[in-house]
Simulated scan of single mutants.
Amino acid sequence: MIQDRTFGSRLLSSVNFILLMIISLATVLPFLHVVAGSLTTSAEMAAKKFIIFPSDISFEAYRFVFSTGTIFRSIMVSVSVTLLGTAFSMLITSLMAYGLSRKDLDGRRTIMFLVVFTMLFQGGLIPTFLVVKELHLIDTYAALVLPLTVSAFNMIILRNFFQNIPEGLEESAKIDGCSDFGILFRIVLPLSMPAIATISLFYAVTYWNTYLNAILYLNDSSMWPIQVLLRQIVVLASGLDYSSSLDGAVPPPDQAVKMAVIVVATLPILAVYPFLQKHFAKGALLGSMKG
């Protein structure tokens, strides 16, 4: 028979519950404020400092954000760069992580040292720009992908995950005549879906939030991803004249526009997370257990 919980355990559970609720509210409330602020009218935005439930719903901020004809092109640019960049990064990262996870690889420790070294010391902004320029990648979408292809942190997480796979499976596959690529794509990767989903999400967030590289390497405004265009919209909204308007309409407040921009920039990548959530925690934990 299961004994009744002691007073101490019940008290500890209650304290944990209260602390977790406070942390959850501290995390959720700012985002709810941003969403509510993007749907708030000018009068309510001026009257209240913190809004969770707007009295009157207004979509003027979103109409202003989507009023430019290039925003849908920028969204397609960001979606394309995110999908292709994530796929390419996962391919290169998986190949590198699998090779470094093999104990019989010559020079494995030296290569791992060089990988970890890049996490501590990097070339810097100007040398990176010069490399991209010399490779003739300016004003190409490759400039948004190639500099971010492999993350040392993501590669190490994936490598550690690969090391947890029993060696007997690979030995059996080799006996059956399977090549190293066959072992990777037919055995290792299917067994590593939690880690693959986790690292894919990391890469997807990185590519979706690409801003600095686009500013540095893309001079053609028609090639800008959504993050750069949204920044231009925020700058434009900050210069609006709220005292008068040619057609008599009151433009949305710049604060509401900024919040709408945050929602537009966050919602697409946030919608992907629920599909990967079941793999996320497991992949991150298992990939960090073994060094």
Rank of each mutant, 00 (worst) to 15 (best):
I262W: 11
V15Y: 12
A46K: 10
F202C: 08
G287I: 04
A249Q: 14
H33Q: 11
R108N: 08
S74V: 14
R5Y: 14
L267A: 15
A249C: 13
R102D: 06
D106Q: 13
T266L: 10
A97E: 00
N164W: 04
M45I: 12
V272E: 03
L114W: 02
N213K: 12
L240D: 14
S151N: 01
T210W: 08
T118M: 09
T82K: 01
V116H: 15
R10A: 09
T128M: 09
M259I: 10
F17T: 13
V205N: 14
Y98G: 06
M155R: 03
L135Q: 01
I196L: 11
D106G: 14
K103T: 14
D220H: 04
G182Q: 05
S9Q: 12
G291N: 09
N164T: 13
I92D: 01
A195Q: 13
L270E: 10
L120E: 12
F121C: 14
F117M: 11
M119R: 04
R5E: 11
V65G: 13
L158V: 00
Y242K: 13
N164G: 12
L212N: 08
S151Y: 03
G287N: 04
L135D: 02
R10E: 15
A197I: 04
F66H: 01
P147K: 01
L229S: 02
Y211S: 03
L11E: 07
L191M: 09
S78T: 01
V145G: 04
A271C: 08
F113N: 15
M119Q: 07
L236N: 10
T86W: 06
I75W: 14
S179A: 00
A43G: 09
L270R: 02
I71Y: 04
M259D: 13
Y211K: 06
V79C: 09
K174G: 06
N219D: 15
S244T: 15
I22F: 15
R63C: 07
M96S: 11
G107R: 11
V257G: 02
V77F: 06
S67H: 13
K133R: 13
R5L: 12
V28K: 02
F153R: 07
M155F: 04
L218S: 01
A87Y: 03
G107E: 00
N154D: 02
L105N: 10
M96Q: 10
W208Y: 08
Q277L: 00
V264Y: 01
Y141D: 00
D4F: 14
R108F: 10
A214I: 05
V235A: 12
L29E: 08
V150Y: 05
L95F: 06
M1S: 12
R108L: 07
